[in-house]
Design a protein around this nucleic acid. Structure first.
Lengths: 238, 238
DNA sequence: GAGACACTCTAACACTGTACGACTTACCCG
DNA sequence: CGGGTAAGTCGTACAGTGTTAGAGTGTCTC
């Protein structure tokens, strides 16, 4: 394991040339965002986490917005896009959708950041490429694979975005989901009285397990969308 | 027009009791957000726009986040939800979707804000209520109207969110859409070389009219989703 | 050995959201 | 009519933000 006469003094190439690398910064930023939310990411706090002055970060990253862009692309790498040969196009699309949803739930700051600047990082492009491959293999031609993938991603993003907004509020309150719902209904939502149907919806979310209800809602829309895709496949009688 | 001896000095009742009302503040905030984006909204700038000290705003609004919540709900009022009796459930849903999309495009900051806190203002609830009525009238029962509406809104939100991200970047560059696309491809996206299919998609967006392409993509997904809903209507043979 | 380079840090600037307390009115009650 | 209470506005101030400029450190190359 150790060469003879190897010691700190004889070693010629101390491996860590820099105190931090951009990859480390990005990873730490994602951690911080996960833990403390979008407003919790501060250059000084991030520097502290890496035992480095805040301004040091600016050597590796031009601006905080750029850092966010890096963070977004890093997270994109966590979404896996199965090839269509494994589960068929519908299975592959389903897996992609669920993987994307859980990635967003793991990184709740994602939707708010994504909707400000478009994502053109390498991981985002790889996702697009592999995602389009699913629908090309399914038989879509021309611009259809692009449109189909865009629709799928839009749905997942919107759905997960709402879900994340809900989860964030519950988490920030420190209460359990049913508790939160009850309190919110009782105290803070007198407006709901005017809309009994909406009130019922919110109430149910307090009684039954809210998370399985979110799952059901997500799957419902996903299946509907995929049915719509299937009906658009060339070779389908209408 | 003027009473005898009316002057600044004799006048006893200056009609405007308050210098600003909350409604005015919210409206000005929306305007500022539309013009300068989320980062452009500043309490001091907003105060200046209303000829009022920044701290005065805090009498009418507890916090900047609260102000954003008011702004979101104010914008929700612009989305119109037709009753199902007018255009049938599918027509009504289509109109709702398009109205929501154009509202978001008019207020590009909306998606980023919406995904941080859930919306429970009166206009948001009215939208939910009337939206669910569409699908109830269509024949959906139980929790299905809620799920269907959630899916529709999720899709619109996600789709418009991506669109807005794109539009914002193009607008911020000050260039025309094709110009922007060309430059972005040429200079800033060497990563695209590794994904020729993605590159083609981006390139086409530069050649053809990008806005009609966005329309097409939006409509494609919307129709697919509505087809999926139709297939789920009770009384449909599968 | 010397100079260039990569990297880090301290100090500072302009600006942010917001708390506090003082000030000016308009209104109500005796 | 007179005084007190509340509503509303403002100046000041504070802690914290992203970011710049310049000085400093060490390492690599000739």
């Amino acid at each position: 394991m150790m060469a003879p006469m190897d010691s700190v003094w004889t070693r010629t190439q101390p491996p860590p040339r820099d105190k931090v690398t951009r990859a480390q910064i990005v990873r730490a930023a994602v951690d911080l965002l996960d833990d403390e939310g979008l407003a919790g990411l501060t250059m000084r706090k991030l520097g502290g986490k890496l035992s480095v002055a805040a301004t040091t970060l600016y050597w590796h990253v031009q601006t905080k917005d750029d850092l966010l862009e890096y963070a977004v692309d890093a997270v994109y790498a966590e979404i896996d896009v199965p090839g269509p040969e494994l589960a068929g196009w519908r299975g592959a699309a389903t897996l992609l959708a669920h993987s994307m949803r859980s990635t967003i739930i793991r990184h709740p700051w994602l939707p708010a950041v994504i909707n400000q600047r478009i994502s053109v990082g390498p991981n985002a492009m790889a996702l697009s490429s592999r995602g389009m491959a699913i629908f090309s293999a399914a038989g879509f031609t021309g611009r259809d694979p692009e449109k189909t993938l865009a629709a799928l991603i839009s749905y997942v993003l919107g759905s997960a975005g709402s879900e994340v907004a809900w989860r964030t509020m519950v988490k920030a309150s420190g209460k359990s989901a049913p508790e939160w719902t009850d309190e919110a209904l009782a105290q803070a939502l007198p407006a709901a009285e005017a809309f009994p149907d909406v009130r019922d919806v919110l109430e149910q979310r307090g009684r039954r397990n809210p998370y399985t209800m979110l799952d059901e809602t997500f799957t419902f829309g996903l299946e509907a969308l995929l049915d719509g895709f299937a009906a658009r496949l060339p070779g389908t009688w209408t």
